[in-house]
């Protein structure tokens, strides 16, 4: 564990908690993409299957359980909670998320380190995580006016990605044989997807204005 990975995990945790707190306290999920949340639930469910087969640390196991629990809670709130579900922007959140799942599955079947069930699913989760934010970014562009919490959620998620890249650089420099092309490329693609959002986020912050994305 290094400081970059810890900072990445903490911003990731903060992003999910900000979202859960928003949904739980103001009973609204306006501006939140259910498609993205369902993709994250799939990402965690397929990546953390090793919870049953390998043990790394109490921290690792605990965080996995938190991410699984929080992502499925958010999906549950948005789909079934009687007040929250009415605030969901159903008509705007039209991204066909299955068009992301299938290519990622195909890619994981073709490009992986080992052809085993757990390894292919783990690789699939990396590919899917890289693009899972897309429905949320599309929804943000459509609704344009973004409330602070949704903006902070995406900002924190982007921060998590940035810290993980620093973590990989640090590990590459300090640990022998630490070369992981699949993780790195998927992670880099994911981080780049946030670049556009970050540009507008910082502009609105600099000008002290409400975040608005161009149509």
């Amino acid at each position: 564990m290094n400081i970059f990975r810890l900072a990445g995990d903490m911003t990731h945790l903060a992003s999910v908690l900000v979202l859960l707190l928003k949904i739980h306290t103001i009973k609204s999920c306006a501006g939140v993409s259910l498609k993205t949340q369902e993709l994250y639930a799939i990402v965690f469910a397929t990546r953390y299957l090793d919870i049953f087969t390998s043990f790394y640390s109490i921290y690792n196991t605990l965080m996995k359980l938190i991410f699984l629990g929080s992502s499925f809670s958010i999906v549950w709130y948005m789909r079934y909670h009687k007040t929250v579900r009415r605030t969901y922007d159903r008509e705007q959140d039209t991204f066909r998320h299955w068009f992301l799942v299938l290519p990622c599955l195909l890619l994981a079947l073709l490009i992986h380190e080992k052809f085993t069930f757990l390894e292919v699913l783990w690789t699939f989760s990396l590919y899917l995580e890289a693009v899972a934010i897309l429905p949320q970014l599309v929804l943000l562009q459509r609704t344009r006016n973004i409330d602070n919490l949704t903006g902070q959620y995406v900002f924190l998620l982007g921060g998590y990605r940035g810290f993980y890249i620093l973590n990989w650089i640090y590990r590459y420099l300090t640990e022998p044989h630490f070369v992981h092309w699949i993780t790195w490329i998927a992670g880099l693609v994911q981080t780049l997807l946030y670049a556009d959002f970050f540009y507008y986020y910082f502009q609105s912050w600099k000008n002290n204005k409400k975040l608005q994305l161009p149509a």
């Binding site: 090793d50 390998s54 973590n167 990989w168």
Partner: peptide, 10 residues
């Protein structure tokens, strides 16, 4: 021993 894999990450 250190695990030189990203599997120990989240």
């Amino acid at each position: 021993p250190k695990d030189h894999s990203t599997k120990d990450e989240l």
